[in-house]
Write a protein that binds this DNA or RNA. Structure first.
Length: 699
DNA sequence: TTAAATTTAAACAAAT
DNA sequence: AATTTGTTTAAATTTA
């Protein structure tokens, strides 16, 4: 246990930097491995998916790179890190395993962003600085700045296009998801189809999908690596001009630059394949190859140059050759206010995409796990997950773990499916895993997400099968367990059962977590023991529970506000973006922050939601709204008689949820295997007592 | 840096 | 007598 914590330890202050470095070094392995595992399976059909992935990753990487670039000085990573890995390889590694952006990383990034707007700003500024540096370098090479011809208006337009692209991306993702679901599950008029219109859906801008994609590429390309670029190049429908960037004089600037800040990066770059090869368990060669080749090609390219066109956002100037491009770059995109502003915007775009991606990934992950692992096949399902987890978890549970563990690499269920997405699965796992080690609560846990259930719900299947520690505190989980029960009360043993049934993670080290459960039950006032004929059951004193929570939350009133406000999000975002355009300052940041907080799961401020879909209310919003509803409903449900007028204190936290028929399902189904002890026939009706208590409490 | 939360571990007592 | 349940205390970590 200690160990884990150590690895995680990140000084708060330097979080942004350390966090990143940490991630890259420690988790890349797992991540890359994961990524590969599934990637290989990709079938022809998935190719499109891959494409998308690549693109996304491009964006992500760009973001990541930027993040990594921060104060090189900040690189000092936690002790544990140092020991475990040589580190310093962040950038290169990152490049090497484009596929895999560990969800964890994402989360961290998100967290950072979410955490403090200030940090964010600082970050942005830093990034900006870096980008500017790049610009400067180029400029210096040739001449001095020249006149700025382009107008902001144009830039804005471009940016908007980018936005649209983002939306497009989202739509596509959705589409894919839907398709998958459709394929796997049932045809019929799935709800998703409504959203499908994405295809036909002509973005407001009226750009063709192809165009959008191109634009998108451009956007991402701007911040991305050469590597990625190539990847896209490759996959991209090669719009006309030969991709032939002919390896001009190695302008690795892109990579170099980015890494420039981190001095160590260069060396790392030299030995790319090796590392990641070794890392990967040889899952999908395809991707690897691709990557490798990309690396090689990287020589003469520039992230901002592709298809004979300058990819600077908003600039599509044709450049015959690389030299020309460089000239153009120096002259048109010299260091000036405009470029700076564009950089900022780009950064924001990337960030948002990043967040969105993480969100989508998570969702996909959940979907996949649901669809594939579902079959309640006792073993098959858990394995894959385990592996991943084992990698990280092992640290965690040194003692007891041995049994189930691992063994893993081999079959990682990779078999699971041909999904191109697979990489995500692991990644997600990694995400959940790694971060949570020592103290599970960490990230959002209950603090931000009121309705835990809603948090779990989406990943329900995931946690059920993945040996990943849920990011919730014991108290939260216990409460959830009790809330899920029909009578709002459970015996200790039933609680245990719920844990094992609901989380694969708790199928191990029983002694440890059971002790913790008991400890929590006794410790927290919110858990009330009610004597029963047969024994005793535990109930939740919602008041107490909320009290605690509210205390924390009240600390930052914003949280409370956020929920409601979130409704206006969809538009808000656009507005903010526009503002950004206008101001190019940091308005956007404002928006991202809150949302993250809001939903615990960084639902993503990317509420950009597919225009096509609903009333434009982003899924996220829906979610939050949904949650709220659930909460309120719950309230009612729980107390049949409930209190109409009773308005619980202030934020009447959406009490909780019962919403999950899912849970019910679980009970019925599969997990029985694991459960075993589940059905304790306690038919007693002592609930009356309970209800009495509850009602009182609730008031 | 401090304080509050959480997680783990462990000792013990009471109830089964 | 062996477990299971509950309570407590304490230490280590994380987060604010």
């Amino acid at each position: 246990m200690m160990q884990e914590s150590a690895t995680e330890t990140i000084s708060n202050s330097s979080m942004s930097q350390n966090g990143m470095s940490t991630l890259s070094s420690s988790q890349l392995e797992a991540g890359s491995r994961d990524g590969r595992s599934s990637a290989g399976d990709t079938s022809s059909e998935v190719s499109t998916v891959e494409l998308l992935h690549l693109q996304q990753q491009q964006a992500l990487q760009a973001a990541r790179q930027l993040l990594l670039q921060q104060p090189g000085s900040g690189l000092k990573s936690p002790k544990s890190q140092d020991k475990q890995r040589p580190l310093q390889v962040p950038v290169s590694v990152a490049m090497m395993s484009p596929q895999v952006i560990t969800p964890q990383q994402m989360q961290q990034i998100l967290q950072q962003q979410v955490l403090s707007p200030q940090q964010l700003q600082a970050l942005l500024q830093q990034q900006q600085a870096v980008m500017l540096q790049q610009v400067c370098m180029l400029a210096n090479k040739n001449k001095h700045q020249q006149q700025q011809q382009q107008q902001l208006a144009a830039q804005q337009l471009v940016f908007q296009q980018q936005l649209l692209q983002m939306q497009q991306l989202q739509q596509q993702q959705h589409l894919l998801n839907m398709q998958r679901q459709g394929l796997l599950s049932l045809p019929g008029p799935a709800p998703g189809q409504a959203a499908l219109p994405g295809q036909t859906l002509p973005p407001p801008g009226g750009l063709s999908p192809a165009e959008l994609q191109q634009l998108w590429k451009d956007v991402t390309g701007g911040g991305g690596h050469a590597i990625e670029d190539n990847g896209i190049k490759h996959s991209s429908s090669g719009t006309g001009t030969g991709t032939g960037v002919g390896g001009g004089g190695g302008l690795d600037l892109s990579t170099n630059n980015s890494s420039s800040t981190t001095s160590s990066s260069n060396p790392a770059k030299a030995s790319p394949p090796i590392t990641h090869h070794s890392i990967t368990n040889g899952q999908s060669p395809a991707l690897n190859h691709r990557r490798d080749s990309l690396h090689e090609e990287g020589g003469g390219t520039h992230p901002l140059y592709g298809h004979g066109v300058c990819k600077w956002p908003g600039c599509e100037t044709m450049c015959e050759d690389f030299g020309q491009f460089l000239k153009h770059l120096n002259s048109e995109h010299a260091l000036d206010d405009r470029s700076t502003a564009q950089c900022r915007v780009q950064m924001q775009v990337v960030q948002q995409l990043e967040i969105q991606l993480s969100k989508e990934r998570e969702r996909l992950q959940a979907m996949m796990t649901h669809l594939h692992m579902r079959p309640s096949e006792p073993k098959s399902s858990p394995k894959p997950l385990n592996l991943v987890s084992s990698v990280t978890m092992s640290k965690n549970l040194p003692s007891a773990s041995p049994p189930n563990l691992p063994q893993t690499p081999t079959t990682p269920t990779a078999p699971i499916t041909p999904m191109a997405a697979m990489p995500q699965v692991p990644s997600v796992l990694g995400g959940a895993n790694v971060p949570s080690m020592g103290a599970m609560r960490r990230r959002h846990s209950d603090k931000y997400s009121m309705p835990l259930s809603s948090e779990i719900a989406p990943n329900y299947e995931f946690y059920k099968n993945a040996d990943v520690r849920p990011p919730f505190t014991y108290a939260t989980l216990i409460r959830q367990a009790i809330m899920d029960s029909a009578d709002m009360q459970l015996t200790l043993n039933e609680i245990y059962s719920w844990f094992t049934r609901t989380f694969a993670y708790f199928r191990r080290n029983a002694a440890t977590w059971k002790n913790a459960v008991r400890h929590n039950l006794s410790l927290h006032k919110c858990f009330v023991r009610v004597e029963n004929v047969k024994g005793a059951v535990w109930t939740v004193d919602e008041m107490e529970y909320q009290k605690r929570r509210s205390q924390k939350i009240t600390g930052s009133p914003s949280l409370v506000k956020n929920l409601p406000s979130s409704l206006g999000y969809g538009t808000a975002l656009n507005a903010s973006l526009q503002a950004a355009l206008a101001e190019t300052s940091l308005p956007l940041l404002g928006t991202p922050g809150p949302p993250g907080l809001l939903g615990g799961s960084p639902p993503g401020l990317l509420g950009i939601s597919p225009p096509g879909t609903l009333s434009g209310s982003p899924p996220i919003m829906l979610q939050s709204a949904h949650e709220e509803l659930n909460g309120s409903l719950d309230h009612l449900d729980t107390n049949g008689h409930s209190s109409p007028g009773y308005s619980p204190p202030v934020h009447m936290p959406p009490v909780h949820v019962k919403e999950e028929p899912l849970n019910m399902d679980d009970d019925d189904c599969p997990m029985s295997l694991v459960t075993t002890a589940n059905h304790s026939p306690e038919l007693e009706d002592d609930r009356e007592l309970e209800e009495g208590n509850l009602s009182e409490d609730l008031e």
